[in-house]
Design a protein around this nucleic acid. Structure first.
Length: 426
RNA sequence: GGAGAGAUGGCAGAGUGGUCGAAUGCGGCGGUCUUGAAAACCGUUGACCAGCGAUGGUCCGGGGGUUCGAAUCCCUCUCUCUCCGCCA
């Protein structure tokens, strides 16, 4: 959510931000209803004040034993009460509508965000490493078949397309990647590990911005009105929903492994082969709760933490500055990390590094005290994948496939894998 | 799933219809004392909304109701705890 005062007083800046993001939101309707509500609430408050005064007087009259006067006053109060009831209903109606509209207004892009309308306008900031030679490699789905480590057909049989079975060294590689990444962020980068619930309630999804706008993208358990998480960002950010953190608790840095579940409702037929786009995948996610003045420095740290994984795995990747039109609804600033997959000849988005500023914190009501007895204020939240497993595995298999069909295991994974080589079955 | 108990400020914990936004303790902040600190003592200390402000309003798990008036009575939902049942 954007601060109401900002919506009122800096309307044109808000409008400009919406235009840059290419998102049409009901700002004008919000503004006019807000004005109506403020007028109404003022007169309601006056009536409530009068009613409060009257009730006190009645109480005093009773205390003095003036029964008749009290009874007369009571009748007067009755008519006030009806007026208040009517105004209260209207007040609530307006407020509900305002909340509804407010939740549809996107976060504004930070001033450093470049203009653009689609991913074509994103700008590569820099690349790390060299593109590996492509002669010994092939798409990871072919490598996986040679090695017998992924089973797409059986995944489809037991759940549907986009659900993958990992087998043998494939399953072990997945587990190795998860453990390695968690350990890296815990030991080297100082994050606290969280293992969150995979099902969350509506409030949580509103807090991080998936609802109300993106309900159709979520898997929903109707009977219990619970949602499968699309990312650990959702439960981890909501850890501190409706809380006031103490000054010494901020910054908080969490890292969480979780399964992620996405319907990919609008992406049918896109990147359907192999591991490129699946309904269920594993991911290690970092989430930060920080003081507002530090959030842009923290964004860079977060990006470096995510990059460290790719560097240690020796994978070529690039850092992309996301343009306003390609950014997500809740974001103020976003970098993507894209890893090179030589077998499919594509850069694959493997991490989104985002600063939400106070947008999520307002929705989820996450505040902190800057000093011991200072007034609470909203934190800034950030998150980054650190990183997503399937595409990482795809890039890894394609990068490290050798001429003889084996896949070399990067050094940092060898102790987790128990081997330095993945060999095709005899 | 069944039965019972409970949910109050940062924390603990009083308060069962009328100055209760809420006693008290702890914690926090400021001060006195002290070379300094601790202890002791004194003071202070919830959040949100409307308003330029004075001020006013709302909030005692959420929602609804009764009443001139609700933390307090009623209904309902959620959560926590105890016991029973079922179960990985």
């Amino acid at each position: 959510m954007i601060d109401r005062k900002t919506l009122r007083t800096e309307t044109e800046r808000v409008r400009a931000g919406m235009v840059r993001k290419g998102i049409d939101a009901p700002l004008d309707e919000w503004l006019s209803l807000d004005e109506e509500w403020r007028l109404l609430t003022t007169s309601l408050q006056e009536k409530e004040a009068a009613s409060n005064r009257m009730s006190q007087e009645i109480g005093a009259l009773f205390a003095q034993g003036k029964k008749d006067e009290a009874a007369a006053a009571r009748e007067q109060a009755g008519s006030l009460k009806a007026e208040i009831a009517e105004l209260t209903d209207k007040d609530r109606e307006l407020r509900e509508r305002l909340d509804e509209l407010e939740l549809q207004i996107p976060n504004l892009p930070h001033s450093s965000v470049i203009d653009g309308t689609s991913s074509d306008d994103n700008v590569e900031i820099r690349a790390w490493g060299e593109k590996p030679a492509a002669e010994n490699t092939k798409p990871h789905w072919d490598i996986a078949e040679e090695l017998s480590i992924l089973d797409f057909a059986r995944g489809a049989k037991i759940a549907g397309s986009g659900f993958i079975v990992f087998k043998g060294m494939g399953a072990r590689l997945q587990r190795a990647l998860i453990s390695y990444m968690l350990d890296k962020h815990i030991k080297d980068h100082g994050y606290t590990e969280i293992y969150p619930p995979y099902l969350v309630n509506r409030e949580s999804l509103i807090g991080t911005g998936q609802l109300p706008k993106f309900e159709l993208d979520q898997y929903h358990m109707e009977r219990d009105d619970l949602f499968l998480i699309a990312t650990a960002e959702i439960p981890v950010t909501n850890l501190h929903r409706d809380e006031i953190l103490d000054y010494f608790e901020v910054p908080k840095n969490y890292v969480a492994f979780s399964g992620c579940f996405r319907r990919e409702a609008g992406a049918a037929g896109k990147d359907t082969r192999g591991l490129l786009r699946v309904h269920q995948f594993d991911k290690v996610e970092m989430v930060k709760f920080v003081a507002p003045e530090n959030s842009y420095a923290e964004l860079e740290t977060l990006r470096e933490n995510a990059e460290a994984v790719l560097q240690e795995l020796g994978l070529h990747y690039r850092v992309v500055d996301i343009c306003a039109g390609d950014m997500s609804f809740s974001n103020a600033k976003q970098y993507d990390l894209e890893v090179w997959a030589p077998g499919v000849g594509q850069y694959l988005e493997i991490s989104s590094v985002s600063n939400f500023e106070d947008f999520q914190a307002r929705r989820a009501n996450i505040r902190y005290r800057p000093e011991a007895s200072a007034k609470p204020q909203f934190v800034h939240t950030l998150n980054a994948s650190g990183v997503a497993c399937p595409r990482l595995m795809a890039a890894l298999l394609e990068t490290y496939r050798q001429e003889d069909g084996t896949v070399a295991v990067p050094e940092v994974l060898q102790s987790y894998m128990g081997t330095d080589l993945i060999i095709p079955p005899q």
